[in-house]
Amino acid sequence: MRDIKDTQSVSAKVNLVLTYLVMLFFTVMAIYPLLWLVMNSFKTTTEFQLNKLGLPQDWVLVNYQDSWVRGKFPVLIINSIVYTGITTVVTLVFSFMAGFAFAKIPHKATKFLHGSFIIGLLLTLQSIMVPLFLIINWVGLYNSRLGVLIPYIGIAMPMGIYLGTEYIKSIPTALVESARIDGATYMKIFISIIIPMAAPVGVTVAILTVTGTWNEFMLINILTSSDTLKSLPVGVQKFAGALSSDFGKQFAALVIGLIPMLLFYLVFRKEITKGVAAGAVKG
């Protein structure tokens, strides 16, 4: 009897150790490449050629100083903040306005309008890329901030509408009705009741819009040509992608490109994982 118990606890221990080893393996796999990158960004290119896997012998900052200036990173970062900030705020406001109307104002057009937004969840960037490029050119918005922002807002809208409408539906209609009886306009109800109560789902929509917009690369690449209008990912690709042999500077540029999203992730970890799970349910 005792023997069986012992073997059981031994095999349980072996299992536990194995489980930890497997988890540790995947964790190391996930972050080793990033650590490798950061580590090598502090080596000179000459040192990298001799020592590709080890720690730097002396940690130099010259790569960062060079890349920061030559890659025009201050402009790129400001552009990315502007694109992402405006897209997120406008998407939130417009999609919650429409979501409020769909959820709380009975209207015969709702079925069609809401339905067309939901179809938007299935539309692909590839299908709209060329037409959008032609249209933006035609209306004279090529290579302008507005010509980037309007597409970004339109693309983020379906997800905002979908999550917003679902959530606002769960706000008691009695609240809206009693405010109406008290004489409040729909705009006032939107601002003083709907926005505060829909704040939780607002965070989810904001997280999804921020990550999607910040990392967007394909559209801004074809809709702009000036360096002064590019976002951080495009700038990193242009600058670091061209440095095929100057690894030290390239790695420093990549680390600069990585830091904003890393910080955002570390601060909003909980909200991001919640948002990703909510956004994935769309099917």
Partner: peptide, 20 residues
């Protein structure tokens, strides 16, 4: 109120996604 709330988002969506 309905159309004021819905149209801004819908017009952008049509211009950027549905029509293209």
């Amino acid at each position: 109120a309905y159309w004021t709330l819905v149209l801004p988002g819908f017009l952008i969506y049509i211009a950027v996604m549905a029509f293209p």
